[in-house]
Simulated scan of single mutants.
Amino acid sequence: MNAIFDKVKNRSAYTSETSEPTLESTPEEIVIEKPIEEDAFIPLETKPLPVTTNAKTAFETLIEKEIETMLQFNVIKGKKLSSEIGPLIETKKLSHQIVLYEMLKEAIHPATPKSIHYINQYRDKLNARVVLLKIKLARQFTLITIISILLSGFGYAVIESDIFIDKYIFTDTASFVINQLYIVATAFLGAILYFFPKLIKQVNNSTLTAAKIPFYWLAISLGSLSAIVLINTKVFAPYLIDDTFLHNLFIAAACGFVADILYGNIQAIAHL
């Protein structure tokens, strides 16, 4: 039995010596790691966008917009364009666009891109004509004209005609108030009749801007107040016609003309 035990014992040792090779003898697997990019952890929305070389500056955008405005104005008005303008329209070079801008600016004078843009917002749906009553100043002029005509007509009927003499008797105070309303209405009517055609002309030529609206009110106020003073003092009565209504209208229109020249010179000095 001892001999068999020894033989089994020796066999066990023998198998341990010839066991399978360990993991140390197997070749290691080579793994190539991809380098981590620097901006991999930056959120997508915060990553800088690629810079395009064709981006336009604010100045270039403004030049192109105003050139388009002036070209549309020339088409609407049917103005003749110089043959030199045609080749410049297709160019995208800034230096050529500046030359084109100056040529168009001379072609549309006295209108400007600013005044054309202001008037264009009051054109009809077809962009063909200006709707005058869309302009707030024109509506105000129309309202003042209607009120002035009604008050002037009433004052003329009471003061200068015999319509109400047989039916109504007015006290001295009432007659004075009616006479002053008549003079004020006639003064404003004369000034408005002078400035309304001027407004229509500026709208038609697209030379009106929002900056010119205060000038109209100042000139009308000055012309009307001057006319009221001159009519009440009757300075020019001996040299004018006998019809008081036409007399007052003429004085008011003359005062409006003087106010127009005065404020025109003030504006010219202010823009120096």
Rank of each mutant, 00 (worst) to 15 (best):
I4A: 12
I4M: 07
D6A: 11
D6K: 15
K7P: 00
K7Q: 11
V8N: 12
V8I: 10
V8H: 10
N10D: 12
S12C: 05
A13H: 11
S16A: 11
E17N: 09
E17T: 10
L23R: 09
E24T: 10
S25V: 13
T26G: 03
P27W: 10
P27F: 09
E28A: 14
I30W: 06
I36P: 07
E38N: 09
D39V: 05
F41S: 08
P43W: 01
K47G: 02
L49G: 06
V51D: 11
N54R: 13
A55Q: 11
T57A: 02
A58G: 02
F59P: 00
T61I: 07
T61F: 03
T61M: 08
L62T: 15
K65H: 14
I67G: 01
E68W: 01
T69G: 09
M70A: 08
Q72K: 15
V75D: 14
V75R: 13
K77A: 03
K80D: 11
L81V: 04
E84S: 09
T91V: 01
K92N: 14
K93Y: 09
K93M: 05
M103F: 05
A107W: 03
I108A: 08
H109Y: 11
H109P: 01
P110N: 08
P110A: 02
A111V: 05
A111Y: 03
T112Q: 08
T112N: 09
T112W: 04
K114S: 07
S115A: 10
Y118V: 07
N120M: 08
Q121S: 15
Y122F: 15
R123Q: 14
K125W: 05
K125P: 00
K125H: 07
L126Q: 14
V130Q: 01
L132D: 03
K134C: 01
I135C: 04
K136N: 08
L137Y: 04
A138R: 10
Q140W: 10
Q140C: 06
S148K: 04
I149L: 15
G153N: 07
Y156C: 02
S161W: 03
S161N: 11
D162N: 14
D166H: 10
D166W: 02
Y168T: 05
F170D: 02
T171M: 03
D172K: 11
A174W: 08
I183T: 06
V184Q: 02
A185L: 04
A187Y: 04
A191K: 00
A191Y: 01
I192F: 06
I192M: 05
L193R: 00
F196D: 03
I200A: 09
I200F: 05
Q202A: 13
T207C: 02
T207H: 09
T209D: 06
K212D: 12
K212A: 15
I213M: 08
P214W: 07
Y216W: 04
L218A: 06
L222N: 01
G223V: 00
I228Y: 00
L230A: 08
T233Y: 10
K234Y: 02
V235D: 04
F236K: 04
A237M: 06
Y239Q: 07
I241G: 12
D242G: 04
D242V: 10
H247R: 13
A252W: 01
A252D: 00
A254H: 02
C255N: 09
V258T: 04
A259W: 09
D260A: 12
I261L: 14
L262Y: 15
Y263V: 11
I269R: 14
A270R: 12
H271K: 13
L272H: 15
L272S: 10
